[in-house]
Design a binder for these strands. Structure first.
Lengths: 322, 322
DNA sequence: CGAGTAATGCTCATTTTGAGCACAATGGAG
DNA sequence: CTCCATTGTGCTCAAAATGAGCATTACTCG
């Protein structure tokens, strides 16, 4: 008997890569044209650690071998897991989701029957500022969030909502902080603007807000948002970007990767200056000539020379107008 | 029937405070003179979220109300949880530990029958460099770890072990990186030098290595190490230190707190300069005269003025000799 | 060959660090 | 009451890092 208070641990993998300037996340198609992260229940009898179980699920569902992996967060809130419970056929057990972030430089399409790469900003169109501020923010998000804030009954709650709006979306005084991907998603969820909210019964009606991207199964979009927040923060104080690069790469390719992650453009010369001051890379002498202009030298990451050091991250010298 | 592959989620709280220059962690005494973190199984039927369950356990066991709380990490490895399983009387279910970090400025002793404050460096004597490099590193740790590295059968594994040693304990070239508390603890565990290792059956014999502090129940010392690593990192990029301060405090008290966390001394003038450049604090006009010298102004944290901002952390301008 | 496009080199003003000197305001010892 | 040990606080100065940009180089394509 699957008792109501039985616990099931679900493992979820956010597998990211950057292909040229396209940031991608590995998803598995669900029936009824939904999408999900590779996931599955953790079987304690079979697997000694979460990571072993995770690698197994990803291999089975997405036909993909994981490299760099780190744990993200464990979600256990009642009320946001129902659809997966249904899908995985475990009655009304309570699901705990352990989210993992994995990075890979392997941008090849997984074999048939496996996962698919999908632009991760398809799920968060308001997060990509590389071509300037996304229009959807002014046109759709801010007006609706503002209306939602006004809807609150108590004046105190109205003020709090407006504050959160300002802080997360950076209107009026506060600047846009690209690391707050999760905060922004949570705000949109609470305001009922993303489709998951209606599905989970948080909003009384479907939002119908256009341009906010598709929902994902269960709380997977939340887990993806957590992953992006973490990655955007981490790239600045740990050399994680190199996990996304091939063995040899041009400095422009590295910069494109970082830009794809943080979602805004960088000052090229200063980015490079910081790079070699930190001693992260060394030239290989070989050249890449498919650049469209002057050929670029290929560099490699000096992994060995950096272990144990104070371990800084990449500089992210923003452009003035961005 | 408690099946072998049943899952139980255990919640563990690392509750930290700093009392003057004494960094403290809240522990609950166990029978047989062991100590543990406040912990207990998560009951999904009763509690909607982990945090609610956690607050309940801490209240019951340690008679303590939590304030600032953040999730740390979820451990699920087989083999390191046995003692808690026994204690909590749930047969041989598999335990998943969700660790939480909580910070408080309430340094008062919890009521009778509750928890106890204990110096957190009692569990990690090698981590406190405020009075210079702890002698135990040279005298006990390095010789034994070096011997352990030599013990490895394959020459390749010997080299890897020596590398890890260098990187974590910062011998030869690499500098001591105070954030790697967990890495250092894990190394000592693998090398069988801490008492938990023998208990868990990882080491063939008890280590008998003096000066490494007492074991804790289950994997609690590992969770505590995780908490310290996280806190030492976070203090540099988020203003978390203020969670440990009372409403009004002197800048020296704040500095003492930060020093207690990171485990080394700071340059006083530069610490203060960075503080007010960041706009973290403002003077209250009141003075504290129990300083032992010239009275110091009392400051307060400008919480309201900082929400939403790029959110930096405190500067940690090391002293040259430290 | 000339134009377009990147890569790369270099400069310059401004800020931020790292290190320290000096002075101010207490309490306690003599 | 004075001297002094002990902190708190202000200020300086050189060195390093950052932000912004101009200039040059080396390709490809038409």
């Amino acid at each position: 008997m699957p008792a109501t208070n039985a616990l099931v641990v679900g493992l979820n993998a956010v597998i990211l890569t950057v292909n040229q300037d396209r940031p991608q996340v590995l998803i598995v198609p669900q029936d009824a044209d939904g999408v999900a992260l590779p996931f599955g229940p953790f079987n304690p009898a079979e697997h000694r650690t979460f990571e072993i179980g995770l690698r197994r699920w990803v291999q089975e569902q997405a036909r993909f071998q994981l490299g760099y992996v780190e744990q993200l967060y464990t979600f256990g809130d009642r009320g946001r897991e129902a659809p997966v419970a249904a899908m995985t056929d475990i009655g009304d057990s309570r699901i705990i989701s352990v989210g993992y972030l994995a990075l890979t430089s392997d941008t090849s399409t997984p074999p048939d029957g496996g996962g698919l790469w999908r632009d991760w900003y398809a799920f968060f169109p308001w997060e990509d500022w590389r071509e300037g501020k996304p229009a959807v923010i002014e046109q759709e998000i801010l007006p609706r969030l503002s209306a939602w804030a006004d809807e609150a009954a108590a004046p105190g709650r109205r003020a709090t909502r407006h504050d959160r709006l300002k802080q997360t979306f950076g209107e009026g005084g506060s600047r846009w902080n690209e690391e707050r991907v999760l905060d922004r998603y949570e705000l949109l969820y609470e305001a009922g603007l993303v489709d998951e909210a209606a599905r989970d019964g948080q909003a009384d009606r479907p939002s119908g807000c256009p341009g906010l991207g598709p929902a994902m199964a269960s709380d997977h979009r939340r887990i993806l948002a957590t992953a992006l927040s973490r990655l955007r923060g981490k790239v600045k104080y740990r050399p994680v970007a190199f996990e996304l690069m091939p063995e040899a790469f041009t400095l422009s390719a590295l910069q494109q990767t970082v830009e794809a992650i943080i979602g805004y453009r960088l000052h090229k010369q200063n980015f490079r200056r910081a790079l070699d001051r930190a001693g992260f890379v060394e030239g290989t002498g070989k050249m890449e000539s498919q650049t469209g202009g002057r050929p670029a030298e290929l560099y490699r990451y000096r992994r060995e020379a950096l272990v144990g050091l104070p371990s800084l991250g990449l500089a992210t010298p923003k452009l003035r107008d961005a």
